[in-house]
Amino acid sequence: MTIRERRRNAPAGTRSTRPGSRIARLKDDLGGWLFVAPATILVLGLSVFPAVWAFLLSLQEWDGFSEPEFIGGGNYSELLTDEDFFAAAQHTGLYTALFVPMSVLAGLFLAVALNRKIRFIGLYRTAIFVPFVASAAATGILSTYLFSPQYGLVNNVLRSLGLPTQGWLEDQAQAMLVIAIMSLWGQAAFTTVLYLAALQDVPAELMEAATLDGASRWQRFWQVVWPQLAPVTVFTAIWQTIGAIQLFDLVYTTTRGGPLDATKTIVYYLWEKAFRSLEFGYGSAVAYVLFGLTLLVTIGVVVYSRRRGTEAF
């Protein structure tokens, strides 16, 4: 009996009841693929195939109309000296540095606050979770109005408190902060829910033991609960970082990269290059650099957390 046959005859799942028959086996194959083929073809056809194509494009200079020209690594070496690209990378870095710690800490804090049975807790949870359904376009319009220097609620509050009003989205130094705050509004629910789930899994015995040992509430949190939450922290940090370096929607619906390019992120730059200047080859090279960056971040965090003995994956 070959290994393959033995595996086939292992008692698992649905398979033909006539072992050894070649036709039965073909029937199994065909039957299986009839189930999986439509979705598999769609998913692979719209991901693997374009991903390979994007790589080929990144080695060409092409505007979509004229004859594409093969230039090898030309696009990539041009990227190395492209100041606009580095500026975009810096803006993306700024957003990531603002957004990721904010969203992880907010998730942790909100989860701890919401993880108790008090009156109105359902109301509090709903208020914090509902913004999750807001689209980038909706959030964009809301941000533009709330932070409008003239009519915005935020400046109104500052004014009535006697504080100086700000330019917000129209101020180069503040625009990214506003975008990060509004992203947080829409996404706090996600990190909060993950932390809430993890908090429920902290063993009660551990807490009791710590209480018996005379640990204060504060000590119990940092010495007992926080280490238990480490896998979630690693996971949310990676997930939010990947999301942050791919920021595009909210920039498009608020500042369109402005003021003076201050919020132009890598993906916004990619979009402009590809769909405004029709530099498909160069845009694809930017996309591959972004992909590489994403992989690096993921691998980096996973290796770091493995070293420290935190199993997140």
Partner: peptide, 24 residues
């Protein structure tokens, strides 16, 4: 092979697919 290929594609960011998908 099929299931691994599908899980692998989760890693591919949308941005990488925008240009070829648009052309397609």
């Amino acid at each position: 092979f099929g299931i691994f290929a599908i899980i692998g594609t989760i890693m591919i960011p949308t941005q990488l697919l925008m240009i070829p998908t648009y052309i397609l």
